[in-house]
Design a protein around this nucleic acid. Sequence first.
DNA 1: ACCTGAACACCGTTCAAGT
DNA 2: ACCTGAACACCGTTCAAGT
Lengths: 200, 200
Amino acid sequence: MNSPSDLQRSGRMRADARRNHERLLTAAVSAFSRHGVNASLDDIASQAGVGSATLYRHFPTRQVLVETVLEDRVDALCLRARQLLDEPSPVGALREWLVAVVEHSRTYRGLAAAQMALEISDTTDSDQIREAGEALLVRARKAGAVRPDIDVTDLLRLVNAVAWASEHTSAPSEQGERLLAIVIEGVQSRDPDRGERADT
Amino acid sequence: MNSPSDLQRSGRMRADARRNHERLLTAAVSAFSRHGVNASLDDIASQAGVGSATLYRHFPTRQVLVETVLEDRVDALCLRARQLLDEPSPVGALREWLVAVVEHSRTYRGLAAAQMALEISDTTDSDQIREAGEALLVRARKAGAVRPDIDVTDLLRLVNAVAWASEHTSAPSEQGERLLAIVIEGVQSRDPDRGERADT
DNA sequence: ACCTGAACACCGTTCAAGT
DNA sequence: ACCTGAACACCGTTCAAGT
């Protein structure tokens, strides 16, 4: 409660501060799209028409800025996971969501790398995403469709690595699909009797 | 022929130049070990007792310096691949070599990331490694042990991604093993009749 | 409170001057 | 030829001064 973002969402900020906050976010989205999450913070401040120190006041670290910009997308990704729990095929649902995770990690260049670096410290986003994925994974495991020794953290780390690798490629989307296909194959149970096979 | 490294290996350099070259390499190994491949080039020059401009003369880019430092290790890795062609189990051989590739990519912090970035442009090292891996993969494919749609470039990219991910972890070695196990499982044929299963 | 621009420390790279 | 240190441009961060 009473965290900065609470203050920002409610109308408690001074009018000029709230305006600067919005301008900084708009500028950040534009800069991240163009130059990736490591875009110059100075440029973002300039494009927003404020000094760099103002940016630091609103967003003390780059991580905070990135997470704020991505907030809606992360929420959507987690919602999608909950919706997919109703999908009849447990592996199909898991795969579909992992595709979405890869796409999410590729929203901006450098995001996958940033997420991997941050996973050592703990961030709210990764906890949220992990929790959402855990449900899908457990369901597939109980159906006998994925090997029992696969754990969410490992799986998401690997999927994030796939996103990172595919990003450094001329055709990120296709590359991501191919690498993810290998990973999905690797987590599924071998025994064809138990559980279902992946449908293409 | 007559490339700088040829000059350096033969005794054609001026005595002081050759001495500086060696000192720079020693300093680089030490700095890379301590701080990863992105270690300060200025520090390396200082530790070698030369000016930074001398470093740039010998090694125009960081990539050149890194590749020179790693030359012997890359040769050993490729030799190992050729030796493993005599191993009775094609998948076993492939897996053993991929473990070595992961370890290689973790020689210095940041190396896996650097390799991934460089793979877009072409470097001699990655060509060498790809060629060595191709032989092992083709053998396993012919034995029906790995799926026919797996290609070397994809596989090595994924394995490098595993090395990168595991590096950003408190227990890189164990993490690398676990993620690699998933990948290996993913490239193998599903049909238990064709080909052999992985032995633990 | 919030903003601002200047100052700071730290990169990698280049270049003129020296041997 | 080869080396050297100084200069340069570019980062992110901090801080004193202003409203």
